[in-house]
Simulated scan of single mutants.
Amino acid sequence: MRTPLKISAALATATLALTTLTACGGNSPAAASGDDDGKVKIMVGGLDKVIYLPARLTQQLGYFKDEGVDVTLLTEPAGVQATTSLVSGDVQGVVGFYDHTLDLQVKGKQVESVVQFSHAPGEVEVVSNKAAGEITSPKDFKGKKLGVTGLGSSTDFLTKYLAVHDGVQTNEFTPVAVGAGQTFISALQQGSIQGGMTTDPTVAQIVDKKLGKVLIDMRTPEGSKKALGGPYPSSSLYMNTDWVNGHKETVQKLANAFVKTLKWMSTHTPEEIAAKMPADYAEGGKELYAQSIKDTLPMFTEDGVMPADGPATVERVLKAFNPNLKNATLDLKKTYTTEFVNKAG
């Protein structure tokens, strides 16, 4: 277990030491080329997070291999870092939050969600037991230090929205980049944050260890609607639009594989899903890991299709606090495509 003093060092290590996982074939330099040779690099904003479970599960089920596409999965501790890798051309795709496609469009980058894994954020705002008495809603965020995976990440976006929606300005509280998993838990334990936004299996471990309580639960469509006013499409496979248009055969294979996984998830129990995942993902034990999957499963779609009113919810949420987007004109239809999931069998 990492000590509290090593939080920043742990994050730096996680960023530098990317875990490379190859779906089939070797981890050759050609995997970075992104040519129509069936080799694709995908960066995931935390491979062990349940919200991004379809990425590794698709590999575990052998669906990439079945489609004849060689996928190298890489991991970063926060989605914003994964986005940087996409923009710089280091990877061809990202499994991360859809909201980054809107943020990037304003910055002149055309990126689109190709497969929409979810229609809810899967995120949870937790508060430490010590601070639970003074933080009973986002109205109490003022003056507090709140954990997010990274500055500019989707957890940062959602935390700011919740604050602004309840009358707290973004400069009235302090977001602290603490990653997820053990680094988040350590920050909560030592009091360097009073609360924060994270996902399973981190949430399950915090509750199980009685280190904190759930304040806002957005793991279900109902929870998303209550907190954000509608469906909030989050976890997705997004890619540069130019790359998608130039590699449609490969993108279709990826869509086929991911949609097959989403359908598989909808017909299997949390225990069956957990059994397919790497053993080291269940840090808190098999039963707790299965429970964290059960709590998060409602966020996932069964077909990879973008929910009809989802993009508008995301736009409204981002414009509530983001000065770059507030007065910008967004073309939401360019931030996602259903072309490939509609053809997936």
Rank of each mutant, 00 (worst) to 15 (best):
G25W: 11
E76N: 07
A30C: 03
T72F: 00
A55G: 08
P54R: 12
E67W: 08
V94D: 00
P29R: 03
K49I: 04
T22W: 02
I51K: 00
A82S: 15
A55P: 09
V69H: 12
L57D: 07
Y52V: 04
G34K: 07
G62E: 06
L61K: 09
C24W: 14
V95F: 14
P54F: 14
A30F: 12
A17E: 12
G45N: 02
L86K: 08
V80M: 01
C24K: 10
G68Q: 08
L47W: 09
T84C: 00
Q60M: 10
K39M: 06
G96V: 02
L73E: 14
A23F: 06
P54Y: 11
G79I: 08
V50H: 01
T20E: 03
G93S: 04
Y98W: 15
F64T: 11
P54V: 11
N27S: 02
L47H: 09
P29H: 06
V94F: 06
Y52Q: 06
T83P: 00
T22C: 11
T58W: 05
K39P: 00
A31K: 10
V91T: 08
S33E: 11
P77M: 07
A31I: 07
G46F: 12
D37R: 10
T58F: 03
N27R: 03
K49M: 13
G79S: 03
G79C: 04
A55H: 07
S85I: 00
G34M: 08
V44R: 07
V44W: 11
R56Y: 15
V95A: 00
T83I: 07
A78N: 06
V71R: 03
I42V: 15
L57H: 13
M43I: 04
S88E: 09
M43F: 04
Y63W: 06
A32D: 06
V50K: 01
S28Y: 12
Y52W: 15
M43L: 00
A17T: 13
G68K: 11
L57I: 10
K39W: 01
G79A: 05
L74Y: 14
T58H: 05
Y98V: 09
A82F: 02
S28Q: 04
G89R: 09
L74C: 07
L74K: 06
G46W: 14
S33Q: 13
Q59M: 14
V91Q: 03
G93I: 08
G26M: 04
Y63S: 05
L74W: 11
I42R: 10
Y52A: 08
F97Y: 12
G25Y: 09
S33M: 07
P77V: 12
V80G: 00
V87T: 08
L18Q: 13
C24E: 09
A30K: 14
G46L: 04
T19A: 01
T20R: 10
D48E: 09
T58C: 15
A78K: 06
T83M: 03
G26L: 09
Q92N: 05
D90T: 08
K39Q: 12
N27E: 01
L73V: 14
G46T: 11
V71E: 01
G79E: 06
D48S: 14
T84A: 12
V87C: 01
G62H: 07
P77R: 10
D37Y: 01
Q60K: 15
L47T: 05
G79F: 02
D36Q: 11
S88T: 14
T20I: 10
V40M: 12
V80C: 05
S88Q: 14
K39H: 11
E67Q: 15
A17F: 15
G62F: 02
